[in-house]
Design a protein around this nucleic acid. Structure first.
Length: 419
RNA sequence: GUGGAUGUAGCUCAGUCGGUAGAGCACUUGACUGUGGAUCAAGUGGUCGUGGGUUCAAAUCCCAUCAUCCACCCCA
C-alpha cells in the first residue's frame, strides 16, 4: 500500500475503459452531428488566463487551482475548466477571422484542488462544447438540446435540466447593488459563509444550502430586474426548448461558479449520485472574448463531467455488455509447440484476428479456463499430435465441437468462421 | 479548510474477554496420461496502513501519522 496515486486521482482500469471509450465515442458522434470540430488545448496555461477569465473572486481561482512556477519562474496552472483555454486558443489562432459561427468541442482532464468525495476528484474529465459568434436564443436552445441528446443517447433516465438567466451588463449591476443593500441590512442573519459571499460575490448568496436563501426570498428578484432584451432572450430560449420537447425547471438560484457567464445558465443533475449530482452545466458568456482582449464576440458552451456521467449510469443500473478482448486463444502444449504457436499468432494478427497465446506452459485445463474467461470464440490447440499431423485442433467454444485444420489454412479458416 | 466512518490475502470480508491470523471468490496443481462453464481435494499468497506506547504477550488497548470513503463547502 505504499505506492499510491496522488490524492483525488485514480486509475481507470481495463475493466472500465470500454465504458469510457463508449461514452467518449457517443460524445464525438453527437457533437459532430451538430457541426462541431474537436480542439485540443494544453493541460496547463499561464495562470493569468484563469484569473482574468474565470474571475479572481471565484472559489476556483481563490482556492482550487494547481498553480506552480516553472523553472523560468513563470506561474502556470493546470486547467481547472475548459472554456478559458479554448477562448485563448481561438483568439491566439485567429479562428474567428473569416468565420461567422465557430463550433468547437473538447475532451480532457481538469484539475481542481478540492477535498475528494463521492463523484468529486482532483483530476476529472470533461467533454464540452463552445460556440462563438452567435448571440441568438436559438443557439442557447441548440446547445442545451445537444447536451440533452448526448445524455439520452447514453440512456439516462433520471435527469433534470435547471435553467436560469443572470442578466447582462445593462441590468445586472442594478440588481447586484440592490441585493447588496438588502443583505447588508440583515447581515447578522446570514451564515458566516454568506457574510463572506456578500463581500466578494453577492450572486453566490443564492448558492447557500444552509437556509440563507429563505432570507433572500424576501429580497430583490433577478427576474424582476431583467432588461427587455434579456427577458426576451430568456423567453425565446424557453420557447425553443419547448419546441423541441425538452423539459426544464426554472431555477432562479442557479448561479454558476465562473464569473464569465451572462444571460442563460443551465445545469443538468442526475439521480443516484449523492451530494455531487451535477453531471454537466454551462451558459452564455458574451463578454469573455472581449475581456480576454479580442473584439467583442458572443459565446456559449457547456462542460459535462465524464466521471459523474459514468457513476450515474452505474447508479441507474446501466451496463454495457463487455466485448471479448481477443477472438482466438492458442493453447500451447510442450516446448516444441511454442515456436509454431508463436508464428501462427503473428499470422492471425496480420489477418486482423485478435489473438493471444499461452506463455507459461500451464496445463491444458488451465489454458482452456483462461480462454473461457476471455470469452474467445475459438481455441487453437498445438501439441505433439498436432505437430505430427501438421494440423491444429480448432475448438469452437460455444458448441464444443473440434476439428483438425492444417496449419497453412488456419488463418483463413478462422477469419471466415469468425465473421 | 471543517466534521464523521474505515484501513486484515489479488477481491469481498470474519477475527470473541489481548494469547504473534481465517473464510469465500480468484489463481496453480490434481482427481480426469492433452480439453472451459460443474463437483471435490490440496497448494501458493498477509511486516494485520505506518510509527511509537502499555503489556510476559497487541490485528485487538492508547497516542500520533498517512491513506481511503462519506458529508459540509464548491462544482463536473
Amino acid at each position: 500500500m505504499q505506492l499510491q496515486a496522488p490524492k483525488g486521482t485514480r486509475d481507470i482500469l481495463p475493466s472500465q475503459t470500454q465504458t469510457w471509450q463508449w461514452v467518449e465515442s457517443v460524445a464525438r458522434s453527437v457533437f459532430s452531428t451538430y457541426g462541431y470540430q474537436e480542439i485540443r488545448t494544453p493541460i496547463f496555461e499561464n495562470t493569468d488566463l484563469f484569473v482574468r477569465g474565470v474571475g479572481d473572486t471565484t472559489d476556483i481561482v481563490e482556492k482550487e487551482m494547481y498553480t506552480f512556477n516553472d523553472k523560468a519562474n513563470r506561474s502556470v496552472t493546470l486547467r481547472p475548466e475548459g472554456t478559458a483555454p479554448v477562448v485563448r486558443a481561438v483568439i491566439q489562432n485567429r479562428l474567428l477571422e473569416g468565420a461567422s459561427v465557430l463550433k468547437l468541442y473538447y475532451n480532457g482532464r481538469m484539475y481542481r484542488y478540492e477535498r475528494p468525495q463521492a463523484g468529486r476528484y482532483r483530476e476529472h474529465w470533461q467533454v464540452g462544447v463552445e460556440v462563438f459568434g452567435a448571440a441568438e436564443a436559438a443557439v442557447d436552445a441548440e446547445v442545451i438540446a445537444l447536451a440533452h441528446k448526448f445524455y439520452s443517447r447514453l440512456g439516462f433516465k433520471d435527469l433534470t435540466l435547471h435553467l436560469n438567466t443572470i442578466g447582462d451588463r445593462a441590468c445586472r449591476p442594478k440588481f447586484v447593488s440592490d441585493l447588496k443593500a438588502f443583505t447588508k441590512a440583515r447581515l447578522n442573519q446570514f451564515c458566516q459563509e454568506c457574510q463572506g459571499r456578500y463581500e466578494r460575490n453577492p450572486l453566490r448568496l443564492f448558492d447557500c444550502k444552509i437556509g440563507c436563501r429563505e432570507i433572500l426570498s424576501e429580497g430583490p428578484k433577478l427576474l424582476e430586474y431583467l432588461c427587455d432584451s434579456c427577458r426576451e432572450h430568456f423567453d425565446a430560449v424557453k420557447r425553443y426548448l419547448k419546441l423541441l420537447g425538452i423539459e426544464f425547471t426554472e431555477n432562479p438560484n442557479l448561479v454558476r461558479g465562473m464569473d464569465y457567464y451572462s444571460r442563460t445558465t443551465f445545469e443538468f443533475t442526475a439521480g443516484g449520485l449523492g451530494a455531487q449530482d451535477a453531471i454537466g452545466g454551462g451558459g452564455r458568456y458574451d463578454y469573455l472574448v472581449e475581456e480576454l482582449g479580442n473584439k467583442p464576440t458572443p459565446g456559449i458552451g457547456f462542460g459535462l463531467g465524464v466521471d459523474r456521467i459514468i457513476l450515474a449510469l452505474e447508479a441507474q443500473k446501466f451496463e454495457i455488455s463487455p466485448q471479448p478482448p481477443i477472438d482466438v486463444y492458442i493453447a500451447v502444449l510442450g516446448d516444441e509447440a511454442m515456436p509454431i504457436a508463436f508464428q501462427l499468432a503473428e499470422k492471425f494478427r496480420d489477418s486482423q484476428i485478435r489473438t493471444d497465446l499461452e506463455y507459461n506452459g500451464r496445463s491444458l485445463k488451465a489454458q482452456m479456463k483462461t480462454a473461457h474467461k476471455f470469452g474467445v470464440k475459438y481455441v487453437v490447440i498445438i501439441g505433439e499430435d498436432e505437430i505430427k499431423n501438421g494440423a491444429a485442433t480448432v475448438r469452437d467454444m460455444e458448441s464444443g465441437n473440434q476439428r483438425a485444420v492444417e496449419f497453412d489454412g488456419l488463418g483463413k479458416a478462422l477469419k471466415i468462421s469468425s465473421q
